[in-house]
Amino acid sequence: MDPFVVLVLCLSCLLLLSIWRQSSGRGKLPPGPTPLPVIGNILQIDIKDVSKSLTNLSKIYGPVFTLYFGLERMVVLHGYEVVKEALIDLGEEFSGRGHFPLAERANRGFGIVFSNGKRWKEIRRFSLMTLRNFGMGKRSIEDRVQEEARCLVEELRKTKASPCDPTFILGCAPCNVICSIIFQKRFDYKDQQFLNLMEKLNENIRIVSTPWIQICNNFPTIIDYFPGTHNKLLKNLAFMESDILEKVKEHQESMDINNPRDFIDCFLIKMEKEKQNQQSEFTIENLVITAADLLGAGTETTSTTLRYALLLLLKHPEVTAKVQEEIERVIGRNRSPCMQDRGHMPYTDAVVHEVQRYIDLIPTSLPHAVTCDVKFRNYLIPKGTTILTSLTSVLHDNKEFPNPEMFDPRHFLDEGGNFKKSNYFMPFSAGKRICVGEGLARMELFLFLTFILQNFNLKSLIDPKDLDTTPVVNGFASVPPFYQLCFIPV
Rank of each mutant, 00 (worst) to 15 (best):
G98Q: 13
F412D: 00
V319P: 03
V479A: 15
P402W: 05
V472Q: 11
R433I: 03
L7N: 00
V370A: 13
P31W: 04
L43W: 13
C175V: 06
K270Y: 09
T66Y: 02
E155K: 05
D165L: 02
E85L: 06
E155C: 09
S422I: 03
C172H: 09
E203K: 04
I331K: 03
L313D: 00
K84N: 10
K52F: 05
P3F: 14
V490P: 08
K247W: 13
L87W: 03
Q252S: 10
T364D: 05
A369K: 14
H251M: 01
L245G: 09
V323P: 00
N474E: 09
S242L: 12
P480N: 10
F425R: 01
L312I: 09
K375S: 10
Q192E: 13
M240T: 07
E155F: 13
I205C: 08
L445E: 04
L15T: 13
F69M: 14
C151R: 10
V355P: 00
L131R: 02
E241W: 11
F4Q: 02
W20R: 11
A149N: 01
S303H: 07
L445V: 10
K459I: 08
Q214M: 07
K375F: 08
K432F: 09
H353C: 09
T302I: 12
Y189C: 05
S162G: 14
I42E: 04
Y68F: 15
E81A: 11
F226R: 04
N231L: 11
L380R: 13
V145S: 03
D397W: 02
F482H: 15
M426K: 05
K118L: 11
S390I: 09
K235Q: 14
G91S: 13
K273H: 11
F110V: 06
D256Y: 05
I207R: 05
A430P: 02
T386A: 08
I123C: 07
P363N: 02
S24Y: 11
P166N: 03
L90M: 15
I88A: 07
Q252P: 02
I284Y: 09
R261E: 05
F100D: 08
N474D: 11
V351D: 00
Q276M: 14
K52P: 04
V248I: 12
F65W: 05
P211K: 10
L15F: 06
D373Y: 01
E81M: 07
T364Y: 15
E405H: 15
L234G: 05
G431E: 02
D408M: 05
I215N: 05
R119L: 07
S460Q: 05
I387Q: 00
K270R: 13
I181Y: 11
F428N: 02
A173K: 02
F219H: 09
D293E: 11
N116G: 08
S115G: 08
H251V: 01
L445K: 02
L445A: 05
T167Q: 12
M426R: 05
R105H: 08
P227R: 08
Q252F: 10
T385K: 00
V208A: 15
S393Q: 01
F114D: 05
L128G: 11
V208N: 11
L467R: 05
C266M: 10
L458Q: 03
D408L: 05
P317W: 05
D293T: 05
A369V: 11
L485K: 00
I45Y: 08
Y358E: 02
I60D: 10
F476E: 03
Q252H: 11
L287V: 05
I215V: 14
V351N: 01
K399W: 13
Y424K: 09
S209H: 14
V330L: 05
I257T: 14
D2S: 14
F487W: 06
E281F: 10
G228H: 07
R329C: 13
S180W: 08
M129S: 14
L9K: 03
L447I: 15
L152D: 01
I362F: 12
L87T: 03
L170G: 02
P481L: 06
E438V: 06
F194T: 05
T389N: 03
K138F: 07
K315L: 04
R433W: 01
I222C: 10
C266R: 09
K160A: 12
T301C: 06
V76D: 01
S58R: 10
H396K: 15
E325M: 09
R333S: 13
P427G: 04
D293S: 05
I215Y: 12
H78D: 02
V374I: 11
T305F: 03
G111K: 03
S58F: 05
F487P: 01
D463R: 08
E250A: 13
L90T: 08
D262Y: 00
R433P: 02
I488F: 10
T385H: 04
N202A: 11
L467A: 05
K121M: 11
K273S: 14
L16E: 00
V355W: 01
C266K: 13
V473E: 12
P367C: 06
P211W: 13
K235L: 08
F168Q: 12
F419S: 04
K190L: 11
T302D: 01
L361Y: 05
P346H: 03
P211M: 11
Y483R: 04
K28N: 15
G431K: 01
V330N: 09
T290Y: 03
G70N: 04
G137H: 08
A238P: 04
V6F: 15
I381R: 00
V75P: 01
F219M: 11
L314M: 15
D191F: 03
S58L: 00
V76P: 01
I45M: 12
G439S: 13
F4R: 04
D360R: 04
R307S: 11
N176Q: 03
L233H: 08
K121E: 14
G343P: 13
I182K: 01
M74H: 09
G40H: 01
P166G: 04
S209Q: 14
C10N: 00
F219N: 06
F428G: 02
E318T: 12
Y347K: 00
G79Y: 00
I222N: 03
Y379M: 08
P489R: 03
I178R: 03
L54R: 02
G25A: 15
T229M: 14
K185N: 15
L17I: 15
A86Y: 04
E250K: 11
L458A: 01
V352G: 02
K465G: 12
Q44R: 10
I182C: 06
K383S: 10
L14A: 11
V374Q: 05
N231W: 11
L195I: 08
G91E: 12
A477E: 14
L294N: 00
S303C: 07
N455G: 07
Q22F: 09
I205M: 15
C179N: 15
T130P: 04
N423A: 15
V352I: 15
G40D: 02
E241T: 11
R333F: 12
E155M: 09
V355R: 00
Q193G: 13
L9N: 00
H344E: 15
K249S: 06
G417R: 07
L152A: 03
L312S: 02
F451Q: 10
H230R: 07
N259E: 12
S478L: 07
H316R: 07
P471T: 07
Y225Q: 07
L461I: 15
K59V: 08
I213Q: 09
M136F: 14
H396S: 09
G437W: 04
I123W: 02
F100H: 12
Q278T: 15
E203S: 08
S336D: 13
D408I: 03
I45C: 05
M129H: 14
S209A: 10
T348I: 04
F419D: 01
L131P: 02
D408E: 08
R105W: 06
C435K: 00
N418T: 09
L36D: 02
P211L: 12
L458D: 01
N107C: 07
P174F: 07
E444V: 04
S280T: 13
G384C: 05
K160L: 10
I331Y: 00
V323Y: 02
A161C: 13
F94G: 02
I88S: 07
I327L: 08
E325D: 14
F425D: 10
A106H: 11
E93P: 11
L87S: 03
E203T: 09
V473A: 14
Q22R: 13
V436T: 07
Y308P: 00
K232W: 06
